[in-house]
Computed example of a mutant assay.
Amino acid sequence: MIRHETILNILAKEKHIEVLDICEELSVSAVTIRKDLKFLEEKGLLFRTHGGASLENPYINEKAVLEKEKIYVEEKNGIAKLAATRIVENDSIMIASGTTVQALSKCIKPKNKLTVITSSLYVVLHLIHDKNIEILQLGGYVRHSSASVIGAYAAQILDNVSCSKLFLGVDGIDLDYGLSTTNLEEAQLNQKMLASAQKIIVLADSSKFGKKSFAKICDLNAINEIITDKEISPIIKKRLEEKGVVVTIV
């Protein structure tokens, strides 16, 4: 069917599509498009999501940090370099866990004093040799898969600190579900980090969009900016901006 071919062609280009956008493109009802998506999913050609469809499985399984470090390396490094320009002299920032924010820590070269609060052991290792950087390492149980701490002890420390920016890595960004990660305790710690920062900057390569995971971190209206790569779908970029999120493309 020509309509099915058109849907798949658009999806191949955009990676994620919304039912309402396809309705407008093909001048058919939402009921018809949903039936088409159901048929195509049964054929193994796409994955249905809430309000649309994705070329990849939108549900994320946990991967070890050493495995994730090897994928989308160029994109992550580009995102990290741009994110480092958001740090100003004598700043106080927070860096969460994840391979993209780890890449950020390699790009930080403060001209003067910088305070960094982090849950990531790798971030600490990258920054420890710079005498201009004061590091507050959050304590708690260490997740082997992410080499970062989680739990009540880390959250209690955050009750007594405040910073200008949080650089947050995520496993999934869904237009309806919001930001998510694979671990519930990590999501809860991320929520405490959100409350301790004046500005929230998400670092995410384009593969994270249209995906969701077990543990929700927050809605999209809780963040200020997403820094990503040029492969982000124009449709998703438009929807994010409509929700008030600044999308910066490397």
Rank of each mutant, 00 (worst) to 15 (best):
His50Met: 07
Ser92Tyr: 07
Gly52Glu: 06
Pro58His: 06
Ile79Phe: 01
Gly51Lys: 05
Glu75Trp: 01
Ser92Val: 14
Tyr72Ala: 09
Val73Ala: 06
Ile93Thr: 07
Ala96Ser: 15
Met94Cys: 09
Asp91Gln: 11
Ala80Gly: 08
Ile95Ser: 05
Ser54Ile: 05
His50Thr: 10
Gln102Ser: 07
Ala83Gly: 07
Leu82Thr: 06
Arg86Tyr: 15
Thr99Phe: 00
Thr99Val: 09
Glu75Asn: 03
Met94Lys: 05
Glu75His: 03
Asp91Val: 11
Ser54Trp: 06
Leu66Trp: 14
Leu82Asp: 02
Val101Glu: 05
Lys81Cys: 04
Glu75Phe: 01
Tyr72Glu: 03
His50Phe: 14
Thr100Tyr: 03
Glu56Asn: 13
Ile87Val: 15
Leu55Asp: 05
Thr99Pro: 00
Glu75Gly: 01
Ala84Cys: 05
Thr100Phe: 02
Ser54Val: 04
Lys76Asn: 02
Ala96Ile: 00
Arg86Ala: 08
Asn90Trp: 07
Val65Glu: 11
Lys76Cys: 01
Glu56Phe: 14
Ala64Thr: 13
Lys81Ile: 13
Ile71Ala: 12
Thr100Glu: 02
Ala80Glu: 11
Tyr59Gly: 02
His50Leu: 10
Asn77His: 13
Ser92Trp: 09
Asn90Thr: 09
Glu74Tyr: 07
Glu67Ile: 15
Val73His: 04
Ile87Pro: 09
Ala84Trp: 07
Glu67Asp: 15
Ala83Thr: 09
Val101Asp: 03
Lys68Asn: 12
Ile87His: 08
Asp91Leu: 08
Gly78Trp: 03
Pro58Tyr: 08
Pro58Gln: 08
Ala84Gly: 05
Thr100Met: 02
Ser92Met: 11
His50Arg: 12
Ser97Thr: 09
Tyr59Met: 10
Thr99Asp: 03
Glu74Cys: 00
Ser92Asn: 11
